[in-house]
């Protein structure tokens, strides 16, 4: 079978009424819904359904060792979470992690992308090198960094002592543990933002640089007046995706510090895991999840507002 028809995409000419296609529109809509059905069924069954059930659960004193929703609790679970020091401190750890990781993951990714973009030969090599860590599973990265952070004999400790610097107790010091986790995360996940920036850079027409060079613009001015403004859509996307990804932190903290030392790195998802699963209190766990969901939702709403205004 050879497909030769190349129909112009609908809406390709804004403002022009596409009269002959109107009759087929209903059929097309039906086909569209038909094709969407498998996705919608899964989306309803595994995302919307459980989310609504979770919301219902949060108003009951449910337990994973009892059947049913349990006794009605009203807003008690929410009151408990909002007045719990442990909930708020874990919430802060998640925010702290986001503050520590988002700026380097955006700025360093941009710098790496700009450097790679300037390379004439062997660009693929640097693309591969910077993206490679991202495809590693978190368990492997966690294991490798645990070894590198080993006190006294670890790689980082021996590097620092070779330089005559005292090595901090990376994962054992409450002041350093989150920084250590953030460092690992930057190394591990920068590849994704790097690739987005690289694609953004390649979308900038070369003529702009040529024209500006003719007009006497130096590299600094070109960067500030061409690269940065034309990358702003990518920057918004990268930043928002990064904030949301960082707010969802759990795995690497759980693997590196188990939430310690003395709870100083426990993120809110680990708190939810602890109360909801380890302590069997699914109702309370659901309430804590809902509060956390509100935060993610607020961040997503900001992104939505920004991207709509720009579009």
């Amino acid at each position: 079978m050879t497909s030769t028809v190349a129909a112009p995409p609908a809406g390709a000419l804004p403002g022009v009424k596409d009269e002959p296609r109107a009759a087929g529109a209903i059929g097309q809509t039906r086909a569209g819904w038909g094709l969407l059905t498998p996705f919608l069924v899964l989306y309803l069954a595994f995302l919307i359904g459980p989310a609504v059930y979770g919301l219902v659960m949060s108003f009951f004193d449910g337990s994973s060792v009892r059947s049913g929703l349990g006794p009605f609790a009203g807003l008690d679970n929410y009151t408990e979470a909002l007045t719990s020091g442990d909930f708020w401190s874990s919430m802060w750890h998640t925010v702290l992690f986001t503050i520590l990781t988002t700026p380097p993951l955006v700025i360093v990714a941009l710098l790496l992308a700009m450097l790679t973009d300037r390379i004439r030969r062997g660009k693929w090599f640097f693309r591969l090198v910077f993206f490679a860590p991202y495809v590693m599973p978190v368990t492997c990265v966690g294991l490798v960094f645990t070894w590198m952070y080993v006190p006294q004999t670890g790689l980082f400790a021996s590097w620092l002592s070779a330089l005559g610097l005292p090595a901090p107790a990376w994962l054992a010091d409450p002041n350093w543990a989150m920084i250590a986790v953030a460092l690992m995360t930057v190394w591990w996940t920068i590849g994704f933002n790097f690739v987005l920036y690289l694609a953004g850079l390649q979308d900038i027409p070369r003529e702009l640089y040529e024209a500006s060079a003719v007009d006497g613009a130096g590299p600094g001015a070109q960067w500030w007046r061409i690269t940065v403004p034309l990358l702003s859509r990518t920057t918004v996307l990268v930043t928002m995706l990064q904030i949301i990804a960082s707010l969802k932190v759990f795995d690497q903290i759980y693997l590196l510090t188990a939430g310690g030392p003395n709870y100083s790195t426990r993120p809110v998802i680990e708190y939810i895991y602890d109360v909801g699963f380890t302590d069997f209190r699914t109702g309370y766990g659901a309430a804590a999840s809902m509060l956390y969901f509100v935060v993610i939702l607020a961040v997503s709403a900001v992104w939505f507002a920004i991207s709509r205004r720009r579009a």
Binding site: A169, A172, D173, P174, G259, G260, P261, N262, Y263, D274, T278, D279, F280
Partner: peptide, 26 residues
């Protein structure tokens, strides 16, 4: 206790405090 036993939060609560003492933080 419902929050005690192997792998429980009781062990975490006790252990984190002990760890902080052994590390000289508390």
């Amino acid at each position: 206790g419902w929050y005690s036993g192997a792998g429980s939060d009781f062990e975490n609560i006790m252990g984190f405090a002990v760890s902080a003492v052994e590390a000289g933080q508390l």
